[in-house]
Write a protein that binds this DNA or RNA. Structure first.
Lengths: 343, 343
DNA sequence: CCCGCAGTTTGATACGTTTCAGTACCGGCA
DNA sequence: TGCCGGTACTGAAACGTATCAAACTGCGGG
């Protein structure tokens, strides 16, 4: 398969390479007659512009990257959708990469996208990542942090107030008379996890008589939820928690499923359950799931807007950090009122 | 920010460009002393290799692309995970793109990835797409079709036997005594949808006394499911279907949720429900969902393997089309035995 | 009749990298 | 001493494109 470039097209159409290039990028500058000849040559040869050369010449690409820790978590998938949509409107393409919760793969993608000279990146990560991003930013690739607030005010970010979210969840459980609350979450090294726990602790501290226990899970997936639920079920009813606050909905759903279907523990009577993120599937789960909600769709949109602003010659002033207020969506799993309408 | 390339590094380290390049690609060929100097220069200048130039020179990239119609459908997300994992093992990076069920965006991404000279593409699409892919393949970018079987035997593909899957689903409902089955699915122009319907029709034809009705939805999302469920609920109990076969789990979950929570229709007593894909959330839904399952994880893995084989100098002989056998996973929503174990 | 101008077209150059064909040096062997 | 083989390094060419300055075309006005 002979490589076909602009040169071959030019030869076949009997014009110069420059004219072909003009035809591709500024068709108006080329006479109708040659336009026709060039178009025919392109089709005949099956010419496709070589992006590498294009980018090399231009020095930039028309794409942005979105690095997610776990695409199969609908929370990140929904964000991806907002990103995609908003970026398309701005004429940008989006490369999505899945780091699979692996720091190593995350680094690899960061490096790769920087080498690709993407216009900018949106990074959702569990790790404290800001330091690593700093050097990339300094070299000229703007980055918006997604899901965790930038520590430095210069670091743009889109996040939710997780301390507040954790507070709302625990407060709600306490108000319904729960006394032994378990916080099921991942490594406390993860900022989001630590913040949600902090919020929950604050709520506990305001109450009398309520204890908070922390149960660790490694990956915060459905499978992790199932596993920890079995551990909990093994304990005697008196020592078991009477409420669980799971650090995300995946965990909560895994817990719910195992508790109800496998362990025959009643939710919310025996154990009340609150999740986090309010993914779409929570509403349709065995027992509709109470959850802390942030506006996912807007998450992606806001992130892209922040990035585009950063890309502008003269970034608009104002805070670069968007923080959404979490809302508690009460459903059956926590023993609250049933069927609260969805936004 | 001064652009920093291999040349600047070479100058600072007082070696030639060639040596720097060697250092990056074949460190062994460079003496320890210069290695040290070059490394220091790279760090000092913050050099990052320009992928455009790299690729231009090499003529290829080390990435493959996966185009999905809907990332927020866990079915495609799970595939993405398998793809990512298998590709990483082969030293390839994966660009995921979300076409958002839009043919236009799909085309845009196809074109863009071809221009990017990715090694190959995995394309999951709802449209009959093979013809468009043909020209791309002829120009040298191999493509593996995901989720729909290639019509031409030359077109590699990974799919499930959807006719069989549809048959299994309908047969199951018939065996449980259902008489008025509704097929809820998208445009019949979509191959997967048409095949599943065909399978269902076959099962109906074998039975006496059973009717099949087709209810159309545009997008096959949870929201579509909710909408169609309201339409169904509006009909009198006698004219309503007593069983629904939804063309995917998203639809099924939307239907389930609305039927049970909002319309107070009992599932499976009044209406039995079977979905398709067996996404993880089906097991944890209000009423655990009976579904037709294909091994998702292996889907992505098989696709990458097929692609890698295609990439090889001498592709191994044998069929290029992997077809998985669907399995019916029976849970409560269809009135079958409860709690069938998960593979 | 010539000049200037707008509209087209051309040819050359640069983008940043890898690689190929050498050059320089060194130690060992005939 | 002269030659060989190997290692470490260098310089230049090439990858495919966009763009800039220059050249060529008609054409209308002075």
């Amino acid at each position: 398969m002979a490589r076909v470039g602009i040169r071959e097209v030019a030869t076949l159409a009997e014009v110069s390479m420059g004219t072909v290039s003009h035809y591709i990028n500024h068709p108006a500058r080329v006479s109708p007659e040659k336009r026709e000849r060039i178009q025919r040559a392109i089709e005949q040869l099956g010419f496709v512009r070589n992006n590498a050369a294009y980018q090399l010449r231009l020095g930039r690409s028309a794409a942005i990257a979105y690095i997610a820790p776990d695409v199969s978590n609908p929370f990140f998938a929904t964000i991806a959708e907002g990103v995609e949509q908003q970026a398309a409107a701005a004429g940008l393409s989006v490369f999505i990469a899945n780091s699979n919760r692996s720091r190593q793969r995350e680094d690899a993608y960061l490096e790769m996208f920087e080498a690709h000279r993407v216009q900018g990146m949106l990074v959702a990560s569990h790790d404290p990542i800001e330091e690593r991003l700093e050097s990339i930013r300094q070299r000229g690739t703007p980055i918006v942090l997604v899901g965790q607030r930038g520590a430095s005010p210069d670091q743009p970010s889109v996040s939710i107030d997780d301390v507040r979210g954790g507070y709302l969840a625990a407060k709600h459980l306490i108000e319904h008379g729960r006394k032994r609350i378990a916080f099921v979450g991942g490594p406390l090294g993860i900022r989001q996890v630590a913040d949600r726990l902090e919020g929950a602790s604050n709520a506990i501290r305001e109450a009398d008589d309520v204890t908070l226990e922390v149960l660790n899970v490694p990956d915060r997936t459905i499978v992790d939820g199932r596993d920890i639920a079995r551990v909990i079920a093994r304990r005697s009813p008196e020592t078991r928690p009477d409420a669980i606050f799971a650090v995300n909905d995946l965990l909560a759903l895994g817990i719910l499923q195992t508790l109800v279907n496998e362990q025959s523990i009643e939710v919310p009577r025996e154990i009340a359950l609150v999740g986090y993120d309010d993914i779409e599937f929570g509403e349709a789960s065995i027992i509709p799931l109470t959850s802390v909600r942030a506006p996912h769709e807007e998450f992606g949109i806001a992130a892209v807007e922040l990035l585009i602003n950063e890309l502008a010659e003269t970034p608009a002033a104002g805070s670069k950090q968007v923080v959404f207020e979490p809302i508690l969506v009460v459903r059956e799993s926590s023993g609250g009122t049933i069927g609260a309408p969805r936004a």
